[in-house]
Design a protein around this nucleic acid. Sequence first.
DNA 1: GCGTGTCAGCTTTTT
DNA 2: GCTGACACGC
Length: 722
Amino acid sequence: MNAILGGLNPAQQEAVEVLSGPVLILAGAGSGKTKVLTHRIANLIAHGTRPDQILAVTFTNKAAKEMRVRLWKLLERQQGPEFDDTGLEPPRSFMPYMGTFHGICVRILHIEHLAAGVERNFTIYDSDDQLTLIRRILRNLHLTGDKSLTPKIVHGQISHWQTLGMSPQDATKEAFYPNQKKISEVYVEYEREKRAAGALDFDDLLTRTADLLQSNSEVRAKWQQKFQHILIDEYQDTNSVQYRLIKYLVNAERNICVVGDDWQSIYSWRGADFTNILNFERDFPGAKVIKLEQNYRSTGNILAASQKIINQNKTRTDKHLFTEAGNGNPITIENLLDENGEANYVAHQIVKMEPGRKWSDFAILYRTNAQSSAFEKAFMAAKIPYKIIGGVRFYDRKEVKDLLAILKLLANPHDRVSLERVAKNILAGVGQASLDKLFAQFDADPEVSLRTAAESLGGKAKMSVLRLANFIEEYRGQIVISAEVEEGDQKDTSATATAQTLELAEVVEQAVKYFDFATLVHSETPDGEERMRNLEVLASNATVYESLEEFLTDASLLSSADEANSGNAVTMMTLHAAKGLEFPIVFIVGLEEGLFPSSRSDGSEEALEEERRLAYVGMTRAMKELFLTFASSRYAFGGRTYNAPSQFLLELGYNPYGSGGFGESGAYDIVMSNDSADFGILGGDPDGEFARKKTKEDNFESQPEPVDTFDSFPEDVPVFEG
DNA sequence: GCGTGTCAGCTTTTT
DNA sequence: GCTGACACGC
C-alpha cells in the first residue's frame, strides 16, 4: 500500500480516491478529517493536478498551516529527497493555495483590484477600525448621546446589511424603524469614508470578491479555470457570502469537496449557516456522500457522554460514531466552591497526573476568555507551565496598533482611520479640531497630500503633521509596499517600482525612534518595558515578510488563536479556539447556568442548541480523560454571583443533591459506556435513562469516593468571599 | 489640546 | 473591578 492510501479505513480511502465531481464528507469528531483532506490533496497531485490548481479553504490560519506541514511531509514521503523536510514551512510555490476565506479573497482582490474597483494597496479595517470610523460619523451626524445608537449596535446592523448584500441605498430604502433610518444614514457615510480612505472591512473582503465574480464573467472564468479542485474544510461554519463565493468559484467540472460536521457548528452567531452543509446534495446534485463515523481519538466513555449531550439537540443529522477503543476511565464531574477553588482543583489534578506525561498533554477549556485569570494565578502558584491561546491578540495591543497605524499610512496615505489613530495617540498637539480640518481638505480634493493639507493647521498641530508627512515621504519610497503577484496581475507599477533599500524591520525600528515611543509608553515603568519589548517583537515578526502589504494583511487577519503555541505547557483556551485540536486530558471548566450555557442563550432554543454543540466540541477534544467542573459561586462584574450547575451536567446524569448537597466539594464518577448492558452512572441520573438500578445506598451512603476534594489541599481552600 | 474625573458597559465565542 | 469614551475646566 502506498503512502497516500496506507493506514486509511475504507470510508477514508473512498474520500481520498473519488477525485472528480462533488463530494460531501460528513466527518464526525475525531474521525481523521484532516488526514483525509491532506491525503486527498496529495492524491490529486499524484494524479497530475498541479498544486496551484488546488484551492483548500480552512477556517483558521492555524488549520491551514497545519495542513501545509502535514501535506509537505506526505509529499516528501511520496517524492523522495528533493522534498527536503527542513521542519520549516514548505515553500508556497510547491503548495496549493491554503488559507481562510478572507485570505483567499485578499489575494484575489489584490490581483483583480482594477476589475474589482478597489485600491491596489487597500487597507483592511478590523472591527476596532470600523468602530473608530462609525464613532466619527455618529459625531459628524450629531447622533451621539443616543444609547440605542451605540457604535457597536450601528456596526452590528451595518455588518448585517453587508452580509445580506445590501448597499447603503438598499438599506435606506428598506429601513423601517427610526433607528434603522438613522443607521442607514451612517451606513451611507461609512461606505463613502471607506472608499475615500481606500479601505475594505472584513465583510467587504468577502462581499467585494463575491460581487466581482458574480458580475464579471471574464474574471469568473479565469478563476474557475485556475482552481480545478476546491476543498472546503469546516463547511458547517460557512455563511451566506462564503456560500456565494463557492458557487462562483466552482467550474463546470464541479470538482468540489466539502468536509464538515453539523454537530460541530458553533459559529452561527457570526452568520454561519449549517444548513449549507445539509443542502450540499441539493446544490450539487449527484454528490458523493461519504460518512466518516469511526472515532480514533477518544475512549468509549468520552464518546458516549458526548453523544448523550448532542442527543438532546432536535436540529441535527443522525450519525453513529463508534470507537474500537475500550471504555477507558470514567468521566469526572467536580463541584468547587468558587473560581479559585476550581483552578486549584485543576492544578492539583494536573500535578498528580503529570508524572509520565507531558504538561502539553493537558488542556483547560472555558466558555469565556475572562475565566483564564483564576487559572493563571493557581498555575503560577503551583509552578505549572501554561500557555494561553487567544485573548488579546498581539497585533491588537495598543502600542502595536499605534505602530501598525504608521505602517498602514506608509502603505496607504489616504487611510483616515490610521491617520486619526496616529494623530490622537502619537502626534503632539493634534486633536479633533485639527483632524476635522485635515479631513475637510481631503474631502475637497482627494489627491491633496498630507503635507499640503497640513498647511490649513496652525502652530504645534501643523508642526506635528508635517513631521509625520516627512516620515511617510522618507520611508515610503524605500520599502517594498506590494508583493509581486503572479500571473495576470493587472499591475499598477507605481507602488512597486521604487527600489527596496530598507528591510521592514528597520522601518519599524526607525519609527520607534522617530516618534519616540519610549516616552509615549513610559518605558521606564515595568508596563512600559513590556510595551517596548512588544515593539521589538513587532520588528522581529516583520523580518519574515517580503512586502509591507503581506505583513499588514497578516496583522489584520491572523487571529489570536493562530499565534505561536508550541512548547511543553498546559494549554488554556476557549472552547471555540479548541475546535480541531485534541489533548489526552481535558478539563472543561465553569459548567454553570448563565456561563455555559451562556445567559445570552436564555430563551432561545437555537442558541441553546449551539451551546450544546459547543459542549460537544469541547468534550470530543479529550482522548483519555475528561473532567467537568463547576463552581458554586464566582466573581463577575465586580460582584459575586451564585450559579446553578449547568443543565448540560444534568443531561449527563449528574445529580446536584446526590452527594449531600450543594456547595460542598464532592466528586462524581460518571461512567458512560458503549456497552448498553453496562451503562452506569454513579452519583445520580435524573431521568434514569442510563442509570443502573439506583438504591438508597447509591445516593446517600455508598457515595463513590471523591476523586479528590479540597481536604487534601488545605492551604488552598479559598476563603468564602461574600 | 490636554488632563482629570465620571460613568457605562463589560464577559460570549472570531475572520 | 477594569477599561475606555466623553464632559468639563484649564
